[in-house]
Nucleic acid binder design. Structure first.
Lengths: 108, 108
DNA sequence: TTTTTATGTCGTATGTTTGCGTCATAAAAC
DNA sequence: GTTTTATGACGCAAACATACGACATAAAAA
């Protein structure tokens, strides 16, 4: 009995994406990968005030959400944004934010 | 030792807002309040596949995040979007999404 | 071939979220 | 004044998230 499934799929998708962004470490990772060309896993860990293990877990979550991909390069792993899903993220969020905008009549 | 506080305040703010949107019930509530003029607490509960108590808790979380306000009207409580903070939400998210957009060179 | 380096996985502790029933309260209807 | 209606607050259980040390693995360097 997973209550999430009782909601419309588009609500679930937006909620899943929002959840991926719901921790400052994951946002910092996404920003860092976006702005750096290198984006090696080890470099990411060094940027954050968390243990390497914990960062690795946050990386997995972002991979799970489809926002990142990792490519093996010898011993190292090069992470990069997954353009398709980042674009999907934008579409979904912008659509939602516009829906909220339209009726600012019911606001206070 | 709250690890969240080790991150920059702008990352924390975005994460807090994303967390408020990280459950389909809360997204449905925001959409419903945005599109309906009435937005009585009881009506909201009836729209969702959750108990009234649980919906009330989600409403509190949205209030806590500043996205909603409730005005007492006799026995009933009328909910409405909080325009200021909804706009803040838009600014913050759009800024973030643009940052990700700029360097799609480092993508795959 | 041994050691070092980069990384993921596992187990576990602690903390947070979700979901709901029961209770309390206060306005409105009777 | 009693009952009904609408609602939040409290307390609890189950599920999930966060954080990390210890271990495993596999490429590269020595």
């Amino acid at each position: 009995m997973i209550k999430h499934e009782l909601f419309e799929e588009d609500l679930q998708e937006l909620a899943r994406l929002a959840k991926a962004l719901s921790h400052p470490a994951r946002i910092q990772i996404l920003k860092y990968v976006a702005e750096s060309k290198t984006c090696i896993s080890g470099d990411i860990s060094k940027e954050l005030p968390l243990s390497r293990t914990t960062v690795s877990q946050h990386l997995s979550e972002l991979k799970e959400a489809g926002l990142l991909k990792g490519q093996v390069e010898g011993v190292k792993i090069k992470y990069c944004l997954c353009a398709n899903n980042i674009n999907r993220l934008k579409t979904v969020f912008q659509g939602f934010l516009e829906e909220l905008e339209v009726n600012t009549t019911s606001s206070c």
